[in-house]
Simulated assay, not measured.
Amino acid sequence: MTRPATAVGPTIGQRWRTGRWVVLALLVIVVIAAVGTYLTAPRPGEPMDPQSTSPDGARALVSLLRDRGVDVVEARSVADVERAARDDTLIVFAQTSRLTDDDQLRRLAELPGDRLLVEPVSRAREALAPGLRTDGLSSFAVSPDCDLREANRAGDAQLGLAESYRAADPDVDVTRCYDGALVRYTDAGRTITVVGTSAFMTNDALLGQGNAALAMNLAGAAARVIWFTPQERDGAGGDASLADLIPDQVSWIVLQLILAVVLLAIWQGRRLGPLVAESLPVVIRASETVEGRGRLYRSRRARDRAADALRTGTLARLLPRLGLSATAQPGAVTQAVAARIGADPSVVGHVLYGPAPATDADLVTIARQLDDIERQVAHS
Rank of each mutant, 00 (worst) to 15 (best):
G210K: 09
V23M: 12
A188M: 05
V70T: 14
A141F: 03
A167L: 06
L137F: 10
G180V: 08
G160L: 01
L272M: 11
G19Q: 08
A243D: 09
Q14Y: 01
E291I: 12
S279E: 14
V364M: 07
A378H: 05
D304W: 01
G292E: 02
W267K: 02
R43E: 07
Q369L: 11
T197K: 07
A286I: 08
L39P: 00
L319H: 02
L242K: 05
A124R: 09
G136Q: 03
T175V: 15
T2K: 10
S139C: 02
W16F: 14
D135E: 12
I32T: 15
G349H: 06
T229W: 03
A34Y: 07
A181L: 01
F228D: 05
L280W: 05
A181P: 01
V194M: 11
L137Y: 08
L182Y: 08
A25P: 05
D114W: 07
R190F: 05
L99M: 08
A41F: 08
D145W: 02
R115G: 05
S251H: 10
D187R: 14
Q14C: 00
R98I: 01
C146G: 10
I253K: 06
E82Q: 15
G354N: 04
L159Y: 00
S325T: 15
V92T: 07
D234N: 10
V254N: 01
V348S: 04
F140S: 11
S299N: 12
G9W: 05
A326D: 14
L263Q: 02
C177P: 11
I373F: 01
Q209H: 06
Y178M: 08
V142W: 05
A378D: 12
E291K: 11
V81T: 07
I373V: 11
Y165C: 04
D204P: 02
P274A: 10
P4E: 13
L322S: 00
A213Y: 02
